[in-house]
Amino acid sequence: GAPPLPPYSAGGREVTMKKGDILTLLNSTNKDWWKVEVNDRQGFVPAAYVKKLDSGTGKELVLALYDYQEK
C-alpha cells in the first residue's frame, strides 16, 4: 500500500494524480510535499508518492507510484 501521508505543510493547493502518471516537477525544496504540474494544473503531491525520472530533456519529471486524491 501507499506510505503514510506526511502532515500537510506545503501551503498551496494539492493536485490529484493516478498511479503511472508522468508529472513535471516544479519544486522539490519541501522534503514532504513536491510541487508538480499535471494537465496544466499546478499543485502539491506527497514526495513519497512519486519517483524522479531521468528525462534527458532538462525538464524534471516524476512518476506517480500511487493514486493521490487532493483533499
Rank of each mutant, 00 (worst) to 15 (best):
F44T: 02
S55E: 10
L65K: 04
V45P: 01
T16Y: 12
K51I: 12
P6N: 03
G20H: 04
V62G: 13
K18C: 08
L63D: 01
A10S: 15
G56A: 13
E14K: 11
R41M: 15
L26D: 01
L53S: 03
L53W: 07
K18E: 05
P7N: 09
R41N: 12
V36L: 03
D54K: 10
T16V: 06
N39H: 10
I22E: 03
E37S: 10
L53G: 03
A2V: 13
D67H: 05
R13T: 10
L61H: 06
D32K: 06
T24L: 15
W33V: 01
S28L: 04
T57N: 15
K35M: 15
L65W: 03
D40G: 15
V45K: 00
P3C: 05
D54S: 13
Y66D: 03
G11D: 14
A64W: 01
K19V: 08
A47G: 04
V15C: 09
P6H: 02
M17H: 01
A64P: 00
L23D: 00
R13K: 14
Q42A: 13
S55C: 11
L23Q: 01
P6R: 01
L5Y: 07
Y68L: 04
K59T: 12
A47L: 01
K71S: 14
T29K: 10
Q42P: 06
A48K: 10
D40Q: 12
R13D: 13
V38Q: 14
N27S: 12
V15M: 15
N27M: 07
D32N: 07
A64S: 05
E60W: 10
Y49M: 05
P3T: 05
F44E: 02
E14S: 15
Q69I: 13
A10G: 08
K31G: 10
A47P: 02
E70W: 09
A2Q: 10
E60Y: 10
K52S: 07
G58V: 09
V38C: 08
K52G: 04
L5V: 09
A2W: 06
D40W: 08
V15W: 05
S28F: 06
N30K: 05
L23W: 03
V62N: 01
A48P: 04
G1Q: 12
G58F: 09
L5P: 10
Y8Q: 11
R13I: 11
P46N: 01
V38T: 15
R13Q: 13
D21P: 01
S28V: 06
Y49C: 03
G20D: 05
N39S: 12
L65C: 05
V50P: 01
L23A: 08
P4W: 06
K19Q: 09
Y66F: 12
Y8T: 15
N27W: 06
P3Q: 04
Y49P: 00
L25H: 01
G1K: 11
Y8K: 08
T29H: 10
G58C: 07
P46W: 03
S9V: 09
Y8D: 09
E70R: 09
M17D: 00
L5R: 10
